[in-house]
Computed example of a mutant assay.
Amino acid sequence: MDAEDGPAEHARFAAYLVALEQVADADEIELVDGVLADPDPVMARAAVVRHLDRRAARLCPEPAWEEWAEAMARVVVRHPFLVRRLREWSLFRAVALRLPWHPGDLLASSDWLQLQTAAGASPEALGVLAESGRTKRIRNTARASLTRRVEG
Score class of each variant (00 low, 15 high):
A57W: 05
D53A: 08
M72C: 05
A26L: 10
P41D: 00
V77C: 04
W68V: 05
L97I: 00
L99W: 07
R78L: 08
R84D: 13
M1Q: 13
S132W: 11
D38C: 00
R45S: 04
A57G: 15
V95F: 11
W101R: 15
R78I: 02
V23Y: 04
A69T: 00
R149G: 12
A125F: 05
S110I: 00
P39T: 12
A94V: 06
S109Q: 09
M43H: 14
G34I: 01
W101I: 08
G152W: 03
G133M: 03
L20E: 00
V23K: 13
W89N: 03
E9G: 01
V23L: 01
W89Y: 07
D33L: 07
V32T: 06
M72L: 06
Y16H: 15
R87L: 05
E88M: 06
A64V: 11
A119K: 14
W68R: 01
P80A: 03
G6M: 10
L86R: 00
R74F: 11
L59K: 10
D40G: 08
P103E: 04
F81D: 15
P80N: 09
Q114T: 00
L113C: 05
E30S: 06
L36S: 08
L52Y: 03
V49I: 08
D27F: 01
V32S: 04
R54N: 12
A125M: 09
A3M: 10
S132N: 10
G127K: 06
D105F: 15
F13S: 11
R12C: 09
V48D: 02
G127P: 12
M1T: 15
P63R: 00
D25P: 12
A125Q: 01
V95K: 07
I29K: 08
S90P: 00
A37C: 15
